[in-house]
């Protein structure tokens, strides 16, 4: 059967296009006759709202491509929000850059520990990162004595930080820049090829002399780093360090990756797919909220969409996973 030209597009793009068209079709109409969904303010709301999960899911794509999983991203984000707020509000530093660097470096270190344990023992990534999900959450709560560390709206360093880093343009720009960097890393570098090879057939990759272990250490380090950066943005957006932040974010990130067509067993997938997967979830949430769909029904609809979106891609012309 000859398919029309647009069918050559990856199936997840079609799924996204379908949801966007539906969102436009059923969008509430503003007083001036325009569609609320298409307002620039609303569209940028969506992008800002998906940016944190979006950033985490970029790195999660790498982890899943190696055949691994990282359950600790939400806890690492919480650690980052707490460290950022502590450094800024308790006078440990007079530089926003130092505070961010401390938070992100600590999170990259947490990721590196995950990676080292996974690469040099035969404990499965699920178990290693489950342990760090618990442990890092504990660390964040311990460091902050279970308290939220509020960032005020005054004239101090912390307030200045929040005012800058909660700007829509900066948040969305960060997501865009990270997306570009990770797309390049995966599709244009030797490291990217090693990531895929590790997940595709680890034994073959080892026999071929590829640096499987260091690849694994790096992907988990990158996940820690990006989760940490997402935590910095969270602290600014929410004006607080919050050791209870990010619960279940790992599931949202994993959902975005698999909706984007990356095979959960590794080897096959793409950054562009993950971005589309993230957008699908973001547009869907916005569409349902704009139409005031009951939040319990919203969860049921999302469940159906997740399965259908993956089913669409597994059809003819999908990535054959």
């Amino acid at each position: 059967m000859k398919l029309p030209a647009f069918a050559a597009l990856p199936k997840n793009f079609l799924a996204l296009a379908g949801i966007v068209l539906l969102a436009i079709a059923i969008s509430p109409v503003a007083a001036d006759g325009s569609r609320v969904f298409l307002e620039i303010g609303n569209l940028t709301d969506i992008l800002r709202q998906i940016s944190l999960i979006g950033i985490i899911s970029l790195a999660m794509t790498f982890v899943i491509l190696t055949g691994g999983i990282d359950l600790s991203v939400g806890s690492v984000l919480a650690l980052s929000t707490s460290l950022t707020a502590m450094w800024l509000t308790r006078g440990y530093t007079h530089s926003v850059a130092v505070a961010i660097l401390v938070a992100v470096a600590a999170c990259a270190l947490a990721g590196a520990v995950n990676g080292l344990v996974i690469a040099f023992t035969d404990i499965q990534p699920f178990i290693v990162t489950l342990a760090s999900m618990i442990g890092v959450r504990g660390l964040a709560k311990w460091l902050s004595s279970n308290q939220n560390i509020d960032i005020g709206f005054g004239q101090d360093l912390a307030a200045h930080f929040a005012a800058v880093f909660r700007q829509k343009a900066l948040v969305i720009g960060s997501y865009a820049a990270a997306s570009a960097a990770f797309w390049t890393l995966l599709s244009r570098t030797v490291f990217g090829r090693h990531v895929r090879a590790t997940g595709d057939n680890e034994r073959a990759a080892l026999h071929a002399g590829l640096p499987v272990r260091s690849t694994k250490v790096w992907v988990y380090t990158l996940t820690g780093l990006l989760s940490g950066f997402a935590g910095v943005l969270y602290a600014a957006e929410n004006h607080q360090g919050n050791p209870n932040a990010g619960v279940a974010y790992e599931l949202d990130a994993i959902a975005a990756v698999v909706i984007g067509g990356t095979r959960l067993s590794g080897g096959k997938g793409s950054i562009s797919g993950t971005i589309v997967g993230t957008l699908i979830m973001g547009v869907l949430t916005n569409m349902l909220r704009l139409n005031n769909v009951d939040s319990n029904v919203e969860m049921m609809i999302k469940a159906v969409i997740i399965v259908l979106a993956v089913a669409v891609q597994r059809g003819k012309g999908g990535n054959g996973a």
Partner: peptide, 24 residues
Amino acid sequence: MVHKCAGAALVAAAALAIAGCSGP
């Protein structure tokens, strides 16, 4: 054809769920 059916079902399911939830 699987994906097309699934795609149609996807749109139909969402549309169905939203029917009756029109604006104020």
